[in-house]
């Protein structure tokens, strides 16, 4: 595509972002500020993820882009096409074939492997923001490991609802040190963060923060001893492939209230159906 650098961003910007990524990888879970650039996408639509992907993508990469687990929603299609046009790299829907995955709100069901990079789109990176509006103060709290209020949050949940009601963007402790928001993935996906063989990168464009979890890093969801962390379960199986292990979306299929539960991860569901055919 003429007039644009490879992957849209100029090399100086990529270098700046890569430096931020290196620092983030060196301090797992720590939010690194970076000079977020204007992207051809509004804030709130994945500019952070876009910039991280643009900084690490190379000509030999194979890119997969998903939104809520699906490769074929509007946003996933737009972003995938953007990179196809500005880099010419191969794209895929298959998790096991991708070297680089950009995602909004899900981690693929297919286990990731060493050598893969997954980039998360993050709206609000700061886990302490719910009770502490001052940036200067939250930075200090992270620096001094003052995380009391994170458990206050869980305590309040249990008090109000009888259980921890947070069901997505569930806070985690990375490498026993920093508390992090894993982006609005369902808590169902939190266990996949723990000691993943892949490199996890997180980009928040509007808030101008990058953070990372290097491969094989312990990631623990916060909980109480007597209210341990649990993931969602469904009574139903996927209506298309029969899976009982994947995260299911509930879809309304007609105007009489008919509904269907299907895998949110479209690639996973499709391949299961391929295998049974």
């Amino acid at each position: 595509m003429s007039g644009y650098n490879f992957a849209y961003l100029d090399e100086q910007t990529k270098r700046m972002i890569r430096r931020a990524i290196l620092k983030a990888v060196a301090i797992p879970g720590y939010q690194v500020p970076f000079g977020s650039r204007e992207m051809p996408l509004s804030y709130g639509w994945g500019t952070g993820g876009l910039q991280v992907t643009a900084s690490v993508i190379g000509p030999d990469d194979v890119l997969k882009v998903i939104d809520q687990g699906a490769d074929d929603t509007t946003n996933a299609v737009s972003i995938r096409r953007f990179f196809a046009r500005t880099t010419g790299v191969a794209t895929t829907r298959r998790t096991d074939e991708a070297t680089l995955i950009q995602t909004r709100h899900r981690i693929p069901e297919t286990p990731l492997r060493e050598g893969q990079i997954i980039v998360f789109q993050v709206p609000i990176p700061e886990p302490l923001r719910w009770l502490e509006p001052r940036e200067a103060e939250t930075r200090k709290m992270h620096a001094l490991e003052e995380y009391g209020i994170m458990h206050v949050r869980l305590y309040e949940d249990i008090t109000l609802h009888g259980r921890v009601a947070t069901s997505y963007d569930y806070p985690v402790r990375v490498n026993g040190r920093y508390v992090m928001r894993p982006s609005p993935i369902p808590k169902f996906d939190n266990p996949k963060l723990d000691r993943s063989p892949a490199l996890l990168l997180f980009g928040a464009g509007r808030e101008k923060r990058i953070y990372a979890v290097p491969p094989y890093t312990p990631v623990r969801s916060l909980d109480f001893e007597d209210h341990p962390f649990t993931i969602e379960t469904w009574e139903q199986a996927c209506g298309l492939c029969g899976s009982r292990e994947s995260f299911l979306d509930e879809i309304i299929v007609d105007d009489k209230g008919g509904r269907l539960f299907v895998c949110s991860d479209t690639d996973h569901c499709e391949r299961r159906r391929d295998r049974t055919r």
């Binding site: 003052e146 009391g148 209020i149 458990h151 206050v152 305590y155 001893e225 007597d226 209210h227």
Partner: peptide, 14 residues
């Protein structure tokens, strides 16, 4: 009341 003990590591809701 519970915040400070949570801040120093108390992890049992009850």
């Amino acid at each position: 009341v519970g915040e400070r003990i949570m801040a120093v590591g108390a992890r049992h809701y009850g």
